[in-house]
Design a binder for these strands. Sequence first.
DNA 1: CCCACTACTCCGCATTGCGTGGTAGTGTGC
DNA 2: GCACACTACCACGCAATGCGGAGTAGTGGG
Lengths: 108, 108
Amino acid sequence: MDSTQLLKGVLDTAVLAVLSRGRTYGYDLVRQLRASGFDEVGDASVYGTLRRLFGGGYLTSEVVPSEEGPARKYYGLNRAGTDLLDRSKKTWHDFAGVMSHLLEGEEE
Amino acid sequence: MDSTQLLKGVLDTAVLAVLSRGRTYGYDLVRQLRASGFDEVGDASVYGTLRRLFGGGYLTSEVVPSEEGPARKYYGLNRAGTDLLDRSKKTWHDFAGVMSHLLEGEEE
DNA sequence: CCCACTACTCCGCATTGCGTGGTAGTGTGC
DNA sequence: GCACACTACCACGCAATGCGGAGTAGTGGG
């Protein structure tokens, strides 16, 4: 099954949600997302999303050298990011409500 | 709020769901979708989706002349369409589950 | 005759996730 | 010391798909 298109517009929200649990860097974020059920997210998609969100002013960013590999770019939510997450949650909720109503409304 | 991207990959399912309530034509489908909560679906998107689904062999199609305007192209689900709807429902359900878990999991 | 409403179609654009491949840094095994 | 693996990030081009705008028709009203 191809849930690729479902991710569109939702990956942002998912990334924000993971970041609301605490700052992390891209590579780890990918792992967390995959562990959460988004089994097949491409890493490039996540990095792209992070760059877009950061560019939009929703994230803080800090490069931290690591002793077990290349430097990590830690991202965190700022006020705008938290607000965006709240709004996205609401949008998602409404949208999901419409969908489930449509999908199950005619069967009971 | 821009739920445009959320629609991606879901409009197919929504169209199939509406069609499972009975055959209709594009123009009416747009009205039903808008009434269901997809307030701002573009008509071109719906027509495009119908063409894609029909091209994929999921729909039946029949042109019926109308006395109050141009001819209507009625679409209905065939076996493949019903199957696709079932699968799409499942995919959506799983996906929605992952999302709600992610969005609300850290708060309780 | 112009306009409004119904009904469908085509074209080009924007967004965004993905695949591929590339650059680095560290550590392991031979 | 070289190949390889793992971590970590990025760039490029592609594909899917929703949208806006414009176009074609048919019917009927002022």
